[in-house]
Each structure stands twice: as C-alpha cells, then as structure tokens.
Design a protein around this nucleic acid. Structure first.
Lengths: 329, 329
DNA sequence: TTGTAGGCGTTATCAA
DNA sequence: TTGATAACGCCTACAA
C-alpha cells in the first residue's frame, strides 16, 4: 500500500495526498481529513527509503562500537538513542568487536545507508586512531578520544571526579585519605589520581606517596592494597578507590579486619556500577560519569551548527551512599 | 558522487557501470576494471536507499528493546548483531525505555524504514503482550515471551540449567543441596527451582523443603538465607543459588561464619555475570545462558524459511570455577 | 486549493 | 557485450 492507493481512496491526486499527510498548509481541512482517513483505513506506512532518496538524508545516525558487551558502551548508547529519537531519527548500530577489517566494512555499510552522522563509542577512555571516513559525514567520538585534535571527542571529566571524591571525604572530616587506583598508564586511572592530588592540594593536605597504591581495576587489587595499608603503620581514615570493584575489595578487607565502614574508614568508589555500588553488601558512595549525558552530548555535537574540536568534558555526579555517611560514621 | 559520475569517468553507460559494480556476468573484463577503477578513484559509495527502494527491502533488521541498560539485553544484541552482519544487513536499534507510547512510535519508525524483520528483546523472562505491527514484517521475541503462542519466542532453557547445577554438585559428591532462589512468581526463578527439583529427582535425592529459600535476586537475600540455614540445624553441603548475586551473598556469609567454599559448602550461581562470577572474591561456578547464541538464534528464526511457533529453548552452559572445585574441596 | 510532471540514485528489461 | 529507458515511492516546484 503506497501513497498512490491512499490518494485513490481519498479521491485526490498523489500530490495532494502527500501534502495532506505532511501537514502542509495549502490543503483544505476537508481534504486533509479525507486523506488521513484513507491512510488510516489502508494502514499506510510511508516509505522512508523513498523519502530519504529525495531528501538526500536518512534521518539515521550510525553508532559504531567495538564492544557491545562492555559496561560503559550500553549506557552511552542509551543516552545517545534518546537524543537521536528527539531529532526523530533512529540508530543504526554496528559492532566491530575490535576487528579493524570488520570495522571498515561496518563503516562502509553505514555510509551506504547514508547516515546523517557517526558516533564512535569505545569501551576504554584512551586515545584512538580516527576512523577512516570518506566524504562529508560528520563524526563524533564518545568515551574514547580521537588522536586527531581537530575531531570532536566527548569524554567524562574523571579528573574532576577525583577532586570531588576527595572534597567529599574532607567534608566528612577525613584528613588521611589513601588512594587505590587502577592500571598504571591507563588514562582514566592517571586522571583520577591527578584529581586526587588536586583535591588534597585544595584542602591544604599533604600528599603522602605511601598512601597511594596503583594496581588493576579489580576487587583483588582493592583487597590486597588495603591489606598492605593495614599491615603498614600508615594511618588512614578514608580511601578513594579507582573504581567500584576496588572499593568493594577494600570494604571486604576492612570488614575482615574488624573495622567499620565508614566509622573507621570511609570509602569512595568510581563508576556507580550498581551491582556493586548499590546492590552490594554495603552501598558505596561513588562517582557517576553520567554516561547517558555523555551520549546525548555526543549527539548534540553531531547535530549542532558548530562542532567543537578536541575534548568536551562531561561533569561527573557524586552519589552519596553509606560507605561515607553510614549512621555510625 | 553517484553512479552516473562513475559511468562518465569510465566512459560507459549507467547501466553498464551498475552491472560491473554488481559482479554481473554480462560485462567484459576490461569494462569491469575500468568501472571499478573509476569508482575507486571517485570514492563512490552506492546509495542503499535507492537500492532498497527498488528491491523493496532494506537489508536492515530492527531491534526493539525497552531496557538498553540491563545486563541481558546488550549480550543478546551482541549475538544478534553478529548474525545480522552475516546476512550483510545492519541493525536499526530502538529503545522504548518501557514507555508503550514511545514503543509504538519506534515500531512505526522502523516499519517506515522498511526493516526486513523485527526482534523484540526484553530484559525479563516473562510473558509479554505481542507488539502491534501492521503488515507482513516478521517478528521474533527474544528472552521475553510473546503471549501469543503462534509467535516465535527464543528463550534460555533455565529449567535445564537448574538440573545441570544439581547434577554438577552431585557429581562433586554433594548430597544435601540447598536452593536459594529468586523472586516468587518470576518465571525464571520458578523454572530454576523446578530444574533443581528435577536434578534431585534424577539423582534419587529427597527434596527437603527446609533447604529451599526464596527471596529476591540480590546479595542480601543470599546472605540472609544462608544465615538462616546456618542458624538452623539443617545440614547442607552445597547451595544452588538463583543467580550470581545470591551466590556472592552466600559465599560472603559462609566466609564470615568461618566456613570454607567449596570445602565445607559448594556453590553454584546462575547468569555468569562476570563482575561477580569471575572477578569477585572467589570465582563462582555458574550457568551461562548463552545469550549470544540466543540472539543469533532469534535472527536465524527471522531469516529462516519456516518460523517455529512457541518457545525455542537455548541450552545453558555450565562454567566450572573454584566455588565447586577449589583445591581444598 | 488542487493536480501535473520531473527527479532523487539505482536496478532490470529489453533492444541494439 | 552494451546502452536506452522504465520503474521503485515519494516530494515539490509549477501550472491550473
């Protein structure tokens, strides 16, 4: 069933039917009603391919990722999808699963479908080579950062998050704040550590290197580093953990040592990974990167008149839970 | 740059250029090379909208979900995306976020774009009303089950998973196997409990109702139920947990009681949620629902000649880890 | 206010 | 083996 059929049933011309359905002004109210009725009766669904062919655009945005299963990508996609829907467009999804050859295929497929723009979403906050697009299609990077500084990359402000974590702990009266961070060399981990240093500086506290541990982003790393802290003679009344897994490991270790969280030691995590931070043994105060906001920002960059170059930072949000403000604190 | 430009540069007609690029037989080798060269030189990208307009299909599958952020949906999408790529099609993604009005919009948008089929992915394994599609577009449900038995629904065989869990524990010499299950009334929880009963029956063991606990799918539920088991005089040497969160809660509780896992009590979880099952304090033996397989099965149903009606079950896979075969067991 | 006709980029059907 | 030409379904000047 096509527009022609609708026009026939309504007893008008193809052109008039088109105008009526597209809410154009130069159609009488009676005609419009007739056409709408006919369309409804026939269950008419306009063909977006034909429309797109004429318009030269598809009302479609491509999202290119290489890790659908990660924990960050889906959240970013969520935010992006909402914003794309707001532009009455839809999402064309392509996942390369880390295979560059496959990715090139995917890009081709998306360009053939004439996406209005492309969002490249990484699972890791690292600098990455720009993708290879021929033509004018605008591209925005999300979470991962393009190596080309002229590209637009939307990323979480994790350094700020480190600062906020420390500020919060200081506001809870903590002064001897340790840091158990993630992988050495990882951008996100370095930035969080830098933010930690910022926070201490702002509070006028000395950064004691013996209170800083760096390992992997895992429970066991948090567990072990906390163990070493306990075994040493270094005093500490709070830990800023590089992520919620580390935080969970730290909490379990403190608990096993008979210490109370946050009574004896307050904990701040990062990522707000709810299975750990909200539904775990003890709800954890943590920094939410607002990946939904990040996703929608990326889309707005795509649609905006002027695309900013370089990194666009998205502020995190501190989510306060019992690991810093428990009743016994 | 369009096909016409390529034809001009190659010095052939539009029709010939088309044939050359589509690997049709009736083109001389020389001409084909000329055309391919011209296309490469111009960076020609065929317009899929024009193609789709003629073919009447878009080489695109719609994935409709209402919870992008869940932990099951992304995995299912992953499997589906791979399989859809294999058919050299792409994914049109739409997320209604649980809003029925929005969902109707999304369906409309996907149909307008002439998707070749629709996959409806739920975050919960529950019976759900079929979606309202006008026209011939085939629909397959994944994870959630359509209330209409004529529809095709691809779901994990969780009952079988319960059976496999018990069989595994029995094979490890356990005889007094407790079950801490998920929400009463939840399909997945009921089926897992039924599988637990199956497993005991197969092994010739008596189902002691005092060894069965039902609560929520949470760490705290696992923690508490295990506590009650410990406080009672009921003997148990293993727990089949309804999911990995419950399993983790149980493990922590046993640990706090000074018991060894799996030495004193072996634990099997469900879902293979890796943050808990693999990267947690103790790697957990668990059942993986093979959601990637589920996703690709759904796609195969869509593309297959004959679509099966009713539930299509996907077998789970037992992932053996230290919570049942630790060194001290 | 309505209708006619041309065109969007491609493929497919015929003739040449 | 090649090339005109008519679709595909819709939108939009422009004419009536």
């Amino acid at each position: 069933v096509k527009l022609n059929d609708v026009a026939d049933l309504a007893g008008v011309s193809l052109a008039t039917a088109s105008k009526a359905l597209n809410n154009r002004l130069d159609v009488s109210a009676v005609t419009r009603t007739k056409v709408l009725q006919a369309a409804a009766e026939l269950g008419f669904i306009p063909n977006a391919l034909a429309r797109g062919l004429i318009a030269g655009k598809s009302h479609t945005v491509g999202i290119l990722t290489n890790d659908l299963q990660g924990r960050f990508v889906p959240q970013i996609m969520f935010g992006a999808e909402v914003e794309i829907g707001r532009e009455s467009s839809t999402v064309l999804l392509a996942n390369s699963d880390g295979d560059p050859r496959r990715q090139q295929h995917q890009i081709q497929a998306l360009l053939e479908r004439r996406v209005d723009g492309l969002i490249v979403v990484d699972e890791w906050m690292e600098t990455r080579p720009p993708i290879d697009v021929i033509g004018e299609t605008p591209v925005v990077y999300a979470f991962g950062m393009s190596a080309d500084p002229n590209d637009t990359s939307v990323v979480p402000d994790v350094r700020r998050g480190g600062l906020m974590a420390v500020e919060h702990l200081v506001s809870r009266g903590r002064r001897r704040i340790a840091h158990i961070g993630g992988d050495l060399g990882a951008y996100s981990a370095e930035e969080r550590a830098a933010g930690y240093a910022d926070g201490l500086a702002v509070a006028g506290l000395l950064l004691d290197p013996r209170r800083v541990f760096r390992g992997t982003y895992s429970e066991s790393a948090g567990w072990e580093a906390t163990g070493r802290l306990l075994e040493s003679d270094i005093e500490f009344d709070a830990i800023f953990a590089g992520n919620d897994q580390i935080a969970r490991g730290a909490i379990d270790r403190l608990h096993d040592a008979g210490l109370h969280v946050p009574g004896d030691v307050a904990i701040v995590g990062y990522d707000n990974w709810e299975v750990l931070s909200l539904h775990g043994r003890l709800p954890i105060t943590t920094l939410d990167m607002r990946l939904d906001v990040l996703g929608s920002s990326a889309v707005r960059q795509l649609y905006g008149e002027t695309r900013l170059s370089g990194k666009i930072l998205v502020a995190p949000e501190l989510v306060i839970r019992e690991s810093t403000v428990g009743r016994t604190s």
